[in-house]
Computed example of a mutant assay.
Amino acid sequence: MEIPEGVGWTALMTAYARAQDSRRADALVDDPWARAVIAQATEADGGAHLPRLGPARDDGSSELWTSLGTYFVARTPFYDEHVLAGVGDGVDQVVLLAAGFDGRAQRLDLPSGTTVYEVDSGPVLDFKDAAVAGSAVRDGVDRRTVRVDLRDDWSGALVDAGFDPTRPAVWLAEGLFMYLDEAQSDRLLTTIGSLSAPGSRVATEWFERNPAGEASLVDRPDDQERLAGEMVGSLFRSGPPAPPREWLAAHGWDVVEVTDVGARAARHGREVPWMFDPAHPDGLRVHLAAGRRPAAVR
C-alpha cells in the first residue's frame, strides 16, 4: 500500500515519534496503533528504516528529529487530557479533525458508548485501516471514519456518519491549523462552532509564526535533514488570524487553557529543544489551547 504524501507524510512522522516514545521507560504515550502504522510503512518502503522520513532516526544523531519528535510527543498528553476531561463530563462524541494515524479510540480509557469520528483524506485512513486491521478499539467504543478533505464541505459527511450536532462533542484539531491560511482557519473554526452544542470542547495549537525557510528547519549540514526541513516548511501556511486566546473567544469559546509545547516538554521532564524554546532568539512558541462552549454563546 502506498505511503500517503503531503500532510499525510507529517502524520506518519507523528506516528513514528509516538512509536519511538512507546519504547522509553518514561514514555508519555503507549500507542500500539502508531507502532502498527510504522511497521506497515517500513514494509512498504522496503527496509528497516523509512528513508522518506528523512531525519526520523532512532540513534539520536539528528538534532532536527530530536526537536520534531519532542514536539509531536510533548503535545500528545495535552490533547489526551482534554478528551478525557470532556468524556468525564459526559460528552460521548469525539471528533478527530485531520485524524492521521491517531490511536485514541484504542489507547485512551474512553467510556462505553463513546463514538470517535476520525476525519481525514481517503489515502490516510485507508493506510491506517490496513495497518490496524484486527486491532480492537476500547470495549463499547464506536470508531467511525469520515473520508473527506477538510478544505471541502466536510460537515455534511460528518453528520451522515452519525454525528449529532444537538449533543456536545470534543473536537481535536491537532497539527492542523498551521497547514491552513487565515480564511481557511476561520472557516473551519466557524464550522466547528456551528456543530457544537453547549458543553462542547475544542483543543488545538497555533504557531506564532510560519517557520518555513528558518534556520531551525533548513540550516542543517546533513542533506537529508535539510531536505526534510524544507519539505516540512513548504507545507506551512499563515494559520489562524489571531493568537489562540483572542481567536477562540471571538468564535464563542470560553478559553480553559493556553500553554506551549516548550512548557509542556519541561513539565514532563523532557529537554526543551531550542527550536521550541521561546527564550531562544530563534525559538518558536507553539501554543496549545483549549476552549469550552458556554451555555449561551455571546
Rank of each mutant, 00 (worst) to 15 (best):
G122F: 11
S62V: 02
E257N: 00
A105L: 06
N210A: 07
H287L: 10
G262L: 03
V297M: 12
V132Y: 06
L125H: 04
S61E: 14
Q93E: 11
R143A: 15
V7A: 14
V7F: 10
H287R: 08
Y179F: 15
E208R: 03
T190C: 08
G140L: 13
E205V: 05
A74T: 03
T76A: 13
H280F: 10
V232N: 08
A36P: 00
E208F: 05
L195F: 07
H268W: 13
W9L: 15
S112C: 03
L84T: 15
D58Q: 11
T66F: 04
A295C: 13
A266Y: 02
R107L: 08
D59T: 10
A296Y: 01
P243V: 02
V7S: 07
Y16V: 08
R293C: 15
P278M: 02
T190L: 11
Y79D: 07
A263R: 12
W154S: 10
G60T: 05
E214H: 08
E182Y: 09
R75M: 12
L176F: 10
P32Y: 07
D222S: 06
L235D: 13
P278L: 02
F163N: 01
L195R: 07
A98I: 09
Y117E: 05
A85I: 09
F236K: 02
G60D: 11
A131D: 10
T76I: 14
D153F: 02
L217P: 04
S121N: 00
E225I: 01
D223V: 01
Q106D: 05
V94M: 03
G46Q: 04
R267D: 14
G175D: 14
V7G: 10
A17S: 11
S234D: 12
A249V: 05
R107W: 12
R167V: 06
A105D: 02
V159C: 15
L28P: 01
A130P: 09
D222E: 12
L108Y: 02
E205L: 05
R226V: 09
L172S: 12
A279N: 12
R167H: 12
Q106V: 08
A161M: 11
R18D: 07
D30Q: 13
P244V: 04
F177I: 06
E246D: 15
Q106H: 13
A17K: 03
G60K: 02
R147P: 00
G134R: 00
P221Q: 09
M178K: 00
G239F: 01
A98F: 00
S216H: 00
P165H: 02
T259C: 04
T14V: 15
P273M: 15
G6M: 09
G269N: 02
A173N: 00
D92Q: 08
P55W: 00
P51H: 02
G229P: 06
D139W: 06
P165Y: 04
A44C: 07
M178Y: 03
M275N: 06
V124R: 09
E81I: 11
L235Y: 06
D153N: 08
D21K: 04
